[in-house]
Measured scan of single mutants.
Amino acid sequence: KKIKIKIKVYNPETKEVLELEIEVSEEEAEELAKKLAEELEKKGYKIEEVEI
């Protein structure tokens, strides 16, 4: 079964909002969402919402 992940991120420095969407297997979904959120935060983005 495929799971659709939508991530909306906001960069306070540039006032930019990015929306990302990807489909992955159920097993990958939670781990991938967690890794993406961590990487984006390292780059200065503030995570507003992660929906699985």
Rank of each mutant, 00 (worst) to 15 (best):
E19F: 15
E41C: 06
I5R: 00
L36S: 01
I3H: 09
E23S: 13
K2D: 05
A37M: 10
L32H: 04
L32E: 10
L32D: 06
E39R: 02
L32G: 09
L36E: 00
I5P: 00
K6G: 02
K15D: 11
G44R: 01
A37G: 02
E48R: 03
K15Y: 08
P12K: 06
K43W: 04
I7W: 03
E39V: 06
Y10Q: 12
L36W: 10
E28D: 15
L18Q: 03
E16L: 09
Y45T: 13
V9C: 07
K4F: 11
V9F: 15
K42T: 02
K42H: 02
E48Q: 08
I3A: 11
A37R: 10
S25R: 14
L20K: 02
I7C: 02
I3M: 14
L18R: 06
E26C: 09
I47H: 00
E23L: 10
Y45P: 09
E28M: 14
I5K: 01
E21S: 15
Y45N: 15
T14K: 04
E28N: 14
Y10I: 09
A37W: 10
E30S: 10
I3Y: 09
K8I: 08
I22M: 12
A37T: 14
T14Q: 05
K8F: 02
K4M: 04
E31M: 06
E38N: 12
L18K: 08
K46G: 09
Y45M: 15
K15A: 07
L20G: 02
I5Y: 02
L40V: 02
K34L: 06
K2L: 15
E21M: 12
Y45A: 13
L18H: 07
I47Y: 00
E16S: 10
K46V: 15
E38Y: 11
E39Q: 08
I7N: 00
E21Q: 12
V17S: 10
E39F: 10
E16I: 15
E49G: 12
A33M: 14
A29K: 06
E16V: 11
K15S: 08
K42R: 08
K1S: 10
I22L: 13
I7P: 00
A33T: 07
Y10E: 04
V50K: 01
K46T: 13
E38V: 09
N11S: 08
E31A: 11
E21L: 15
S25V: 14
E49A: 15
L18G: 04
I22K: 05
E23W: 10
